[in-house]
Write a protein that binds this DNA or RNA. Structure first.
Lengths: 218, 218
DNA sequence: ATAATAAGTTAGACTAATCTAACATTAGAT
DNA sequence: ATCTAATGTTAGATTAGTCTAACTTATTAT
C-alpha cells in the first residue's frame, strides 16, 4: 500500500502528465512544493516500485500500474467532492481542501457507498471526469468558451481551472455548470465577451475567464 | 497542531484514564500496540507540549489541555460514526474502522456540517456520549443489565464494549439500542438471563453478554 | 563550438516515529 | 527488610520524508 505521501506524488504526476505527457522533475517539485532533491528521491522510490518509468536525466512518465493507482486516488478525490456538494451541502469552492484529505482514507466500502448514494456519478462538481473502479477515465474534449463565435449557444460543462478565487468569482456572477450561454458579442481589442446567461442576465466575461470555461456547443 | 500519531496517543490516554483514572506506561503501550520505549518517548513529547502530567516512574494523567484535545478527537470519531450510520447507511459494526481514519481530518466546517446534518447528536451508534465543541462530556452512568433483577423492565441504551464480534452477535439476535427488555428469569448457576425483547421475542443472554449491555431502568 | 544557464544527481544532515538491548527504579512477597 | 519481578528509562539503530550544498549533465544562445 502506498503511503499518503506516495499517493500525493502519484496524483501530481498523473495530473501533470495529463497536460504535458512527459513530466520534468522540476515540474513535479513545483507542483508538490518540495525541493528538487526530495522529488528526485521519491522518483527513485516510485521507479523501484514499478510505478514510474525513469532513466537518469530523462523525463518521467507513469507506468500503467502507476497510472491506475493515481486514477483511483483521483477517483476517491472527485467522488468525495461530489459527495460533499450533493449530500453535505457544501459549495463547490469549499470541497477541494477536504477532499484532499479524504482521498487518502483506506476503505473500499466507504467509497463504494458514496458512489452508490450519488448514483454512480461520472463528473465532479467542477466538471472533471471521475475515473471508474478500474482507473479508466473517459475524456470528453470540450470546447473553450474563448474559441466560440458570436451568436453561438453553448452549455457550460466544466472548468479548466478550479482555484478558490475563480470559483468564488463565478459564484458572485451566479455562473454554474449546466448553465446555457449565448454569445452576444466579442470585443476585438481584448477578446472579452458579452454573453446572455440562461436567457436572462447579461454578463461581461474577460478572456482570462472565458478561456477557463469549457462548453458544449448546442 | 498535533500529528495523527499524537492524536492517537491522546485518544488512547483519554480512554484509558476514563476507566482507570491514572494510566501506566505499559497500559498505554498495550493499548497503542507499540513498544514501551516508544510509548515512553511519546509521553515525554506530550509532557513537553503541556498535554500530559508526568513525573519519572510515576503514573500518567492528561492535563486539562490534553483532555480537551483528546475529547475533540473523540468527538470527531463519534460524530463520524453516527454520520456513517444515519446518513450513509452503514451498520454499527462497520463504522469504527472508517471513523478511526476520518477522526484525523482537519476541517472544522466538515465536522460542523456533520453535526448539523445529524441535528447535534449526543450519543454515538454504540451509546457512547459525544463530547461537545468545547470537549465537555456529559457522563450518564448507566446500569449494567447483569445487575438488574427479575421482573424489571429496562431500555437498552449503550454498550460497554463495541468489538466487531459483539456487534455482529447482537445483530444476529436482532438486539439494538433503544430496545425495551423485560427480565423474565435469571439462572442462579451462571447468571444467564431469559429476557423478553420489545414484548415479542424471548432471548437467552449469558452473563458475558448481559454485563456488556447498559440499560436505563423503566 | 563552446560557454553560460538550466535541470538533475549525490552526499550528508535533520526530525518523527518506531524498534531492541541494556540499565534503573519501584513494588510486592516472604 | 530485602530480594525478585514488574515496570520504566536510556542508548543507539532504522526508515520515511524532508532539507541545503556541492557537483554533473543537458540545453541554449551567440
Amino acid at each position: 500500500m502506498a503511503s499518503q505521501t506516495e499517493e500525493n506524488y502519484l496524483k501530481s504526476l498523473f495530473l501533470l502528465a495529463d497536460t504535458n505527457g512527459e513530466i520534468s522533475l522540476s515540474d513535479l517539485s513545483k507542483a508538490m512544493e518540495i525541493s528538487i532533491p526530495t522529488a528526485n528521491s521519491m522518483v527513485n522510490k516510485l521507479h523501484t516500485k514499478g510505478l514510474l518509468k525513469y532513466k537518469k536525466y530523462k523525463p518521467l512518465s507513469l507506468t500503467s500500474k502507476g497510472k491506475k493507482e493515481a486514477a483511483l486516488i483521483i477517483r476517491k478525490h472527485r467522488l468525495t467532492e461530489i459527495f460533499l456538494v450533493e449530500v453535505m451541502g457544501f459549495g463547490w469552492e469549499q470541497v477541494h481542501e477536504i477532499a484532499e484529505q479524504i482521498e487518502h482514507i483506506n476503505s473500499s466500502v466507504f467509497f463504494e457507498r458514496m458512489d452508490e448514494l450519488l448514483s454512480f456519478p461520472t463528473i465532479d462538481p467542477h466538471g472533471s471526469p471521475i475515473p471508474d473502479k478500474n482507473g479508466k477515465i473517459v475524456w470528453k474534449s470540450h470546447e473553450n468558451l474563448s474559441n466560440c463565435k458570436v451568436g453561438q449557444k453553448v452549455k457550460l460543462v466544466a472548468l479548466s481551472q478550479s482555484s478558490d478565487e475563480f470559483l468564488k468569482f463565478l459564484n458572485a456572477k451566479n455562473i454554474c455548470l449546466g448553465m446555457k450561454i449565448e454569445i452576444l458579442s466579442i470585443e476585438v481589442f481584448d477578446q472579452s465577451m458579452l454573453v446572455l446567461c440562461e436567457g436572462l442576465r447579461k454578463e461581461h466575461l474577460s478572456f482570462i475567464v472565458s478561456e477557463k470555461l469549457l462548453v458544449e456547443v448546442l
